[in-house]
Design a protein around this nucleic acid. Structure first.
Lengths: 209, 209
DNA sequence: CGCCTAGAAGCAACAAAATCGCATTAAGGT
DNA sequence: ACCTTAATGCGATTTTGTTGCTTCTAGGCG
C-alpha cells in the first residue's frame, strides 16, 4: 500500500540524470549532434554507458528528453495590452525560436526518440499553455477570444508544418498573417455569420452565440 | 552534352536498390520495424552490409527512403463533380491514410532519416500535387478556387500537426470541418469582404485593398 | 537512529554493428 | 572492344550495444 517507489526523483538518480543532460548539452555544442555517441556522453557525465542504455534505451530517446526541456518556454508571453498585440508578438517569437536552426533541431530530436508520443504531446502542451495565458488575459479585459484549438490549427500547425516539411523561408509577416486570419475567423464566428457555411469549429455547441 | 553519370540509375545499382528496398518492406512485415538491423536487411537483399552503409549511411535514412515511396499517392483524387465534394473526399482519405498506424509510422520514418529535408519536402509536394489536381478540375468547371497554399495551411497542416504532436483521435468530421473553413475563407476573400481584416494571404503588397 | 529492501549504477565479458582499406565487378562513355 | 571509375564485395578492425552479476544508496519501517 506504500505509494510508489516507481520512480526515484531524488538523490543519486537525479544527479545522474542532470549530469547526463548537462553532458549532452555541452557535447552538442562542442562536437555537434551528429558526432555524439552514448559512450562519449557517458564519459563526460562520469557515468557508465550501460547506465544510459538502461535508462534511456538509446541516444535518440536521450536527445528527445533534452530537446523537450529546451523547448519549454521560460517566460509567459508579454502583455502588450490587447489580444491582437499579444498574439502577434507571441506568434512571432514562437516562429523565430522554432524556425531557427537550433529550434528545428530540437523539434526533430523531440519527435525522433519518442515512441509513445509523450514528448511530442508535451511540446504541443507548451504552446497551448502559452496561448491560454494570452487568452485568459484577453478575457480579463473583456475582449472576445477565439478558442485555443482554433489558434493551434490556424497558427501553430501551419508554422510547424512548414518547419518540418517545407524548405521555404518563414518570416514574421507570415506569423502575423496567420494570427490575422485566426482572429478574423473568430470574429466571424462570434458575430455576423455571412453564410451558413461559416465556421462551426469543434462544436460542443455549434448553435448560435 | 551527355547528361550526367552523376548517379548510376541503371544496371546493378538499380537492382541493388530495389532488392534492398524490397528486403526492408518484407522484413518490416515479418519482424517489425524495431527489430530491423542493417545486417539483417543486407542478408535478405543478398548484399553486403557495407553496401548499405555506404549508400544510405544508416538504417534511418534507408527507412526514410522506403517510407517516402510508400507515401506517394497512387491515384489521382476522385472527381465527384464539385470542388467541395472533391476536397472533402480527398481530405478524408488523406487523413485516413496518414492517421492510420502504418501511415503514422511512415511519416515518422520519412522525417527521421532526412538530414536535408529532401524527403519531407517530397511528402509535402505529393499533397500539393493532389490538391492541384482537384483545383485544376474546379477551374475547368468555372468554380472559384482557393490557393493551394491556403489549403495546405488550413487542411494539411492541422492534420499533420495533430498526427505528429497530439494523441487525440482524428476523424472524417474533422477533415470536413477543415475543408469547410478553408473554402469559406476563400469565398470571403474572393467576394464580400466584411471587414478590412479579411484575409490578405501572402500579400505581395500588404497595403490596403 | 539504524536496519532492510529494492531500484539504480558500476563493472566486465560478450555480442553485434559500423567503419575502413583494398580487391573486384560492371556501367557508361569513347 | 576498351577504359575509366563509381559501386560492390570481402575481411580485418574498431566501436557500440547487451547482459549477468555485484555494489551502492534512497527511502521506508520498526
Amino acid at each position: 500500500m506504500s505509494p510508489r517507489p516507481m520512480v526515484r526523483p531524488g538523490g543519486r538518480s537525479a544527479r545522474v540524470q542532470e549530469s547526463v543532460h548537462a553532458a549532452v548539452r555541452e557535447l552538442v555544442g562542442e562536437v555537434g549532434r551528429d558526432a555524439l555517441t552514448v559512450p562519449m556522453v557517458a564519459t563526460r557525465a562520469g557515468v557508465t554507458p550501460s547506465t544510459i542504455y538502461r535508462r534511456w534505451g538509446d541516444l535518440q530517446e536521450l536527445l528527445s528528453d533534452v530537446a523537450v526541456e529546451r523547448l519549454r518556454p521560460e517566460t509567459d508571453p508579454a502583455d502588450l495590452g490587447s489580444l491582437r498585440a499579444d498574439l502577434d508578438a507571441w506568434a512571432e517569437q514562437f516562429l523565430d525560436e522554432m524556425a531557427s536552426p537550433p529550434g528545428r533541431a530540437y523539434i526533430r530530436d523531440a519527435l525522433l526518440g519518442d515512441p509513445d508520443g509523450t514528448n511530442a504531446g508535451q511540446c504541443s502542451a507548451y504552446a497551448a499553455e502559452q496561448i491560454d495565458v494570452v487568452l485568459a488575459r484577453a478575457v480579463q479585459r473583456g475582449e472576445p477570444v477565439p478558442e485555443t484549438e482554433l489558434l493551434i490549427d490556424r497558427v501553430v500547425a501551419p508554422i510547424m508544418y512548414r518547419i518540418l516539411f517545407r524548405p521555404g523561408r518563414l518570416d514574421a509577416a507570415y506569423a502575423r498573417e496567420l494570427v490575422t486570419n485566426a482572429v478574423y475567423a473568430q470574429q466571424v464566428e462570434a458575430g455576423a455569420r455571412p453564410t451558413q457555411a461559416a465556421a462551426p469549429r469543434r462544436s460542443k455547441k455549434k448553435t448560435d452565440n
